[in-house]
Structures are given as C-alpha cells and as structure tokens.
C-alpha cells in the first residue's frame, strides 16, 4: 500500500534576507519520511531543527530545492488551478498561536463560515447549522459563535482553529505545536480532542512538537529532526525506549521527568524534605553537546 504522505529526499535552503548574508546551511537536508493513512505521526526536534519548514513544504507553501512531496502517490507540485484548490481542501493545518491564526475582526461563526463558503461545502442556507455542529464536535458552546477571538480563552481559540480545519473534512491534518501555548490541564483536553476526532474521522495527523512527552502519548510513528536532518525514525516505542542515535538519547535524557519510584522510596525511608536530585540527570553527558 502506498503511504498517504511521502516525503522524498526534500532539501530546502532559505535565501537569507538583508542584512543577514545568504546562509549556506540547508534548512532541510534530504529529508525522507512516509506516513500511512489514518495514523498519527509525530515530528520532534528543537527550535531551528526544521520542523515547521517541513510542514510548510508538505502543505505546498514552500517549494523544495530538490526532492518531492507525494500525497497518495502524486507529486503535489503537479497540481494547478481548480485541481489545486480541491487538493488544498484535503490538507488542513492548526498552528500554535491561535490568536494569530484567527482573524481578530471576524466572529467565530464568520471564520468558520469562510472556509465552507470558499470550498462550497453544503448549501449556503444550511451552513449555520453545520457551524453549530462543528462547534459542538470540538466541545464548544454554540453560544460562542458570535464571539471575537480575543473574547475566548487560549484553549477555546485552539478549539475554534481545530473546528475550522476539520470543517473541510481533510484527509490530512498538520498540527504545528498545537498545544505548546496551553496550560497542562488544557493541553491534555486539546490532545484528547485532536486524537479523538482524527480517530473518529480516519484523519491522518502530522503532529509537530518539541515536547517528546506529548508525542509519545499520541503518535504511533515518530521522526526526530536535528538541523534539517532526520536523525531517527520509527515506531514511538522503539525510538523513545531504544533510541539508536545519540542525539535522540540526549533529547530524551534532557526531559525533566518525575521519578515516582525514587520519590516513593524517599518517602518510605523518611528522608525529610529533600528531592535529592539537585542537578538534572545526566548533566555530565550533556556538556558534550554543542
């Protein structure tokens, strides 16, 4: 079976804007990966690793220097005109900053309606009902439809952005750090919503995050990106439990984790009030990293 998304040796270099001289570094360096239909694929990396650049290439918003992106076996660069519009409908995106993603002068219902109008989904007279359903499916009260983005909380806004992306029933959802700006408890709610909706609708999700814990929780496969290169890719359990590359290992060791066994032991031994782990794990090994 052909994978739904196939990224084939994609390289990309940004032309440096004045006053920065043109950089020779590749933002993406022969990146290849494939995502099967219906799965949640995690893309992790630190800032500047090229995660969002890759998302833009897959969305067709950036042209690669070389290599190709194929959706269902067809090179996305080959779409033109009406075909391109139809193709864009199949792929939607949710960004980190929901305040920037939504038009500040449009009410929620107008933002949602715009996408439906543009792609001619359903009959116009029924669209208000569709919008109400959409809001319900992302757990929002239909009464919020007349609000402006600034009148919503961060979690609510991200729900609106998700509703808008899913209103076109895309095959592919690209979520670029969708929960990074949210509080922990809200983060968990939005992750549940995203994964639930994707599973329900059979949507394939490319989930981009710097947070390995989040990716581990929801993705089946993961690719680790560093300075434009894929360091490692594979099933989540393999990559996170038996990382093959030293970079992945370092990333995983750097995550401040709660060692419940240690804390439990400490409590039982009656050591009063000392977490005992001042200094992060593997601090020595980290100094070797540039």
């Amino acid at each position: 079976m052909t994978p739904l998304i196939e990224v084939d040796a994609v390289s990309l270099r940004y032309a440096g804007a004045w006053p920065a001289p043109k950089s020779n570094a590749l933002a993406l360096d022969r990146v290849s990966l494939s995502v099967a239909r219906g799965e949640i694929f995690g893309l992790v990396g630190e800032s500047g690793s090229g995660k969002s650049t890759l998302a833009r290439v897959i969305l067709g918003l950036l042209q690669p220097l070389s290599g190709a992106v194929r959706i269902d076996g067809r090179d996305i660069a080959s779409y033109r005109g009406r075909e391109e519009l139809a193709f864009r409908k199949r792929m939607q995106v949710v960004f980190q900053d929901s305040l920037a993603a939504l038009d500040p002068r449009m009410r929620v219902q107008a933002s949602l309606r715009e996408a439906l109008d543009l792609h001619g989904i359903g009959v116009p007279s029924r669209r208000s009902a569709v919008i109400e359903d959409l809001l319900g499916s992302v757990g929002l009260d239909p009464g919020l439809a007349t609000r402006f983005p600034h009148q919503l909380s961060g979690g609510q806004r991200q729900r609106v952005a998700i509703a808008r992306a899913l209103s076109l029933s895309p095959d592919i959802l690209i979520a670029d750090e969708p929960v990074s700006a949210l509080d922990l408890s809200v983060q968990a709610q939005i992750l549940d919503l995203l994964t639930g909706l994707c599973r329900e609708r059979g949507t394939t999700m490319l989930f981009i995050s710097h947070d390995l814990g989040v990716v581990r929780r929801i993705a089946r496969h993961v690719a680790v990106l560093q300075r434009g290169r894929i360091m490692e890719t594979g099933p989540v359990a393999d990559v996170f439990d038996r990382p093959a590359s030293s970079y992945t290992r370092m990333l995983i060791q750097s995550i401040p984790r709660v060692d419940f066994n240690r804390l439990q032991a400490q409590l039982e031994s009656g050591q009063p009030g000392n977490a005992g782990a001042m200094g992060t794990p593997a601090a020595g090994t980290l100094d070797a990293v540039p």
Binding site: L184, R257, Q264, P272, G273, A275, A277, M278, T280
Partner: peptide, 28 residues
C-alpha cells in the same frame, strides 16, 4: 508549570490555584 522540573530541583512544592496556595509539602 513544569512538574518534571519541580521533581528535579525542589525540596518542597507549593501548588497555587486562583490566588491561593492549595497544597504544600515535600516534593516526595
């Protein structure tokens, strides 16, 4: 807001909610 950081650096923790400390104790 990162509990992983708390567990690795602190002796005690105070949890805040709506302007109050709702729980304190050793990290363990």
């Amino acid at each position: 807001h990162d509990l992983g950081v708390v567990a690795n650096i602190a002796h005690r923790v105070a949890v805040m909610y709506a302007g109050q400390i709702i729980e304190t104790g050793t990290v363990a």
